[in-house]
Nucleic acid binder design. Structure first.
Lengths: 155, 155
DNA sequence: TGCAATTAGTTACGAATGAAACTAATATAG
DNA sequence: CTATATTAGTTTCATTCGTAACTAATTGCA
């Protein structure tokens, strides 16, 4: 990236990878959320929790946080709204009564089945002009960026 | 993406492009911001405004909003904090007294010169394992995704 | 055992955010 | 001209968000 600006004094926002990713990602997330938020009265963090529980039920709040890269407070809030709305069910583990065990309710499953295709169709449209090769390439580059990010941030 | 899940019923978050971009991008932005926020008492939106003014001075608030993909309220707030801190200067255009003309102050320039290398070094680290080919590829794929996003959202 | 440290999750509170209403200046239509 | 519509930017208000403090349950170690 920034091949145009090797000079460490010059920052061209339009070439700056973190900036580009941020703008792109925010626009995409917003577009998808527009497809379900109003219609299902469902915020993005709530949908993330539902998506992960639809994929794998009986996770704890902490596990949900790990998988969605949300922080535990955000998960706690989303969970409590989803419980109020009757979209998930919660019980607590016998062997550790702090640990919650979360799963979609029947109602939650219904919404999950409705929203999932909206999300996937959006992704499909986004990638509709991409060849299989390009998709694989993109996948690989994102995996690599992700690994690089993890190294770069902490150790 | 989601090559694993062509089935429109099944959403694998870990394969879902919008989700992956969001997690990656948020982590990257956070890491960079950690490098300057506390040290320079500078929030991310404030830095974005400074970055664009450092690159091209004498923009109006609206032009800053367009170039940073921030909304005008966010720009207004960032501008007013930057004015308070003496990091930018504002006057108003003679031919249209509503339109602001913004530029970094001397102090702002100093900060700009300090923060820019932090941002660029982070980007460089992120891409340090990428060959030139891979960088070009990534650049092209992001350009394409961006175009696709624009089409997909509105018309 | 029993007390300190850790862990799961929630609550409280201040800061950040976004939508909508507002103000002031300019452009446009009659 | 003058009234209406539009545009630039700000303010307000309600919501969202993140950090830190808190509660409750569990673990570890003396």
């Amino acid at each position: 990236m920034s091949e145009h600006s090797k000079d460490p004094e010059t920052l061209l926002l339009a070439d700056f990878l973190p900036y580009r990713l941020s703008v792109l990602s925010n626009r995409i997330s917003r577009s998808i959320a527009d497809g379900y938020e109003e219609r299902f009265q469902l915020t993005l963090p709530e949908w993330r929790v539902m998506a992960v529980l639809g994929e794998q039920p009986d996770l704890s709040a902490g596990q949900v946080a790990d998988r969605t890269a949300m922080d535990k407070v955000a998960v706690s809030r989303a969970v409590s709204k989803l419980l109020d709305a009757g979209r998930i069910e919660r019980h607590f583990a016998n062997e550790d009564k702090r640990r919650s065990v979360l799963a979609l309710s029947e109602d939650g499953h219904k919404i999950y089945r409705d929203v999932t295709p909206i999300a996937l169709e959006y992704e499909a449209k986004l990638l509709e002009e991409f060849s299989d090769d390009e998709k694989r390439l993109l996948d690989g580059l994102l995996v690599k960026l992700n690994a690089s990010q993890l190294e770069t941030s902490d150790g």
